[in-house]
Design a protein around this nucleic acid. Structure first.
Lengths: 216, 216, 216, 216
DNA sequence: AATGAATGAGTCTTCATTCAT
DNA sequence: GATGAATGAAGACTCATTCAT
């Protein structure tokens, strides 16, 4: 286990410096940013929904953008945490005999994490293209560290003969696409459908591992 | 073949009613919307970049949102066109002996289309979550017509014994995720990388069809 | 008799130079000015309602204000015409034995005139306070010529012993107030009521002449 | 006595919530609306004259129209107040032996009120025709309550044999026309004349009561 | 720490007017 | 004469941010 998985709660618990009002501000901001987008959300609206005065926001966050970053940064860091810490090694060496095991563990873990923090995830993917700082943060962390770490994993299983002999980057891309595609369709595009999550995740893993040809 | 594939040019050619200024406005708007997002782009900025007076924009588009829609609507329609017309049937019956053939044809076609209209595609996926009308348009067209049509295709090849026996929707989701994932990573997230598109598309198809397990 | 009494028609007939379009513009302008006020009416709206292009208005009237004046000026002139021409003398010497006769003739005539040109009258009284030129025109014509002429009439009947010995200006004011009060209430404030115009005018004259005390 | 009679001061005194700036805004708005009309007055002009930022206006009044209404509504209510409260009954039973007494009291009171609030009165009568809400407010209050109340008074004196036997509505109309005619001519049309108000009001009452015939 | 009145630059949009066709 | 695209100044209104209390 690594934490309560609910990022917002976690943030609140970690720092006792957070005023009650500050928490309300963060919650209201998350809600509004996710719903209407950062640019279309006014600070006065956040203040209103948080039940605080307009000025209060700026007492805690110098600018509106600061407020956004204070929300997104923990999200990014927390999301990639499992991929960078030494857990990864453990993962590799001991736990998972097959890549499929590893994949399943990974997926279940991260899907749970994202589902619990869907609003934050939505804000993150919506704002990354427009916030250079975020883009930098993202590229550096994901594009470098995570992919690098993952490449090791892939190569590890390739050496074991479990994985097809394609460039690790391509394999990672396909895998990540399948996972994010599932999360986005399931939670953002068609959340109103009646989902059998367990089965759907199983199928997704199956298709990632064995493709969609019948002869498999 | 169906048309010049470059949507903007096509729009310009189709309607001779478009003033020179109007074309400039559209180009400037596309550029700006893609770069900074719809909400963060001001009409005065569009006017400046288009080299016209701000009032000119509103002579042609009643509101800023109208301008956005006039850009996105053809995009949506054009994108899904190949999936809804009867070409689809032809595709099924005659042309493609295997699903892989079909998939390859489809991917190449749509990737070419999207690559040529990357800015429009970016605007589209950025704004869909925040524009209810767009969301409606999208859901109706994609969520209904396209998926339905595709399901037929999948079932067709399932009956032929070429495809795995999973719910068509899951198969479509995985396939679409892989394709869009490729397009987004290649064009939006890491465009600066040195891509061997042909090989990368091949690998993507290969992984979709046969999975990433070595034993395939 | 003095003309068709319907000013708009009259204006149209007098000048054959008026294009068909020009007539439409004037009609649309009158309608709009009366309904929403001069300042709140846009030239584009007038053009639309008149079925002409925006530029056409400015071909005939240099400015929006010119259009207003071209409408109001004939109104002012035509309204006060009966009071300034020599008809007045005839009125005095021959026609009307009593002031009441004179008043009745006057009222019926002018009420008919105003009722037929209610829209113009409404524009006139709405815009006078805000258009210095109009105010000047009005003051000069009404405040000088008309009152002067009327004063002669009043003095004439005072000498005949038919009218009370108060300053003519006060008598004119009371009389004019009663008449305009009737016209405004009848046509502008409560037009939806069921009016017996003939009786109401009779009563108005009666009250002007004999007051509202019972002993009369 | 009922209050300071000067509405603006009264409004200011009643609500201590009014900021100094807010008062300045109201004063500047009244001045400008009366001078140029509501539609021709820009909020930036009001702000400039009030010595505040334009945004300040909209902090206190959601829209320009709200500002207008906040000015006019107290005017309407205060103006008709004397006619609807029970003072009226007192007036009837005890105070005034004759209708003339009543009329004189009424006129002096309301003329004083209007003279002190001339700007507001001007705004009111200018905007009523174009503001449906105002028209409604006006019709309901004046057209229903006030006329009804006044009709009772007229009938009361008719039964006493003091008033002519004409429809009360006609009598009220004549009387009101005479009064408003006086106020408008005196204050709005020809304010620069040298008025002997006391005498002029006397004459007006005399003419209302006894008409303008000599034999009275 | 919290407030909320105040700001003024900036937003989208409208408008009267011009002018090439 | 008529058009309607083009203009840019001006309009109402919003916004992130500041600051005295």
């Amino acid at each position: 286990m690594n934490g309560p998985d609910n990022l917002i709660e976690e943030i609140f618990e970690q720092s006792d410096e957070l005023t009650e009002k500050q928490k309300k501000i963060i919650l209201a901001a998350i809600q509004a940013f996710a719903e209407k987008g950062y640019a279309s959300t006014s600070t006065s609206e956040i203040a209103r929904n948080a039940g605080v005065a307009e000025g209060t926001i700026f007492r805690h966050y110098k600018t509106k953008k600061d407020l956004l970053y204070s929300i997104i940064e923990p999200m990014v860091k927390k999301f990639i945490a499992p991929f960078v810490i030494k857990d990864m090694e453990k993962v590799l060496n001991e736990k998972h005999a097959t890549f499929e095991d590893f994949l399943r563990a990974m997926i279940e873990n991260r899907i749970k994490f994202l589902s619990k923090n869907m609003l934050l995830f939505k804000i993150l993917i919506q704002e990354i293209p427009f916030q250079p700082e975020l883009k930098g943060l993202f590229k550096e962390h994901i594009g470098t560290k995570v992919i690098a770490r993952f490449s090791q994993v892939v190569e590890h299983y390739q050496e074991k003969g479990q994985l097809i002999d394609l460039p690790p980057f391509s394999i990672i891309r396909l895998t990540a696409s399948a996972i994010f595609g599932y999360i986005i369709v399931r939670n953002l595009l068609l959340p109103e459908l009646d989902w059998d999550d367990k089965a759907e995740i199983d199928r997704t893993i199956q298709m990632i591992m064995h493709g969609i040809s019948a002869e498999t």
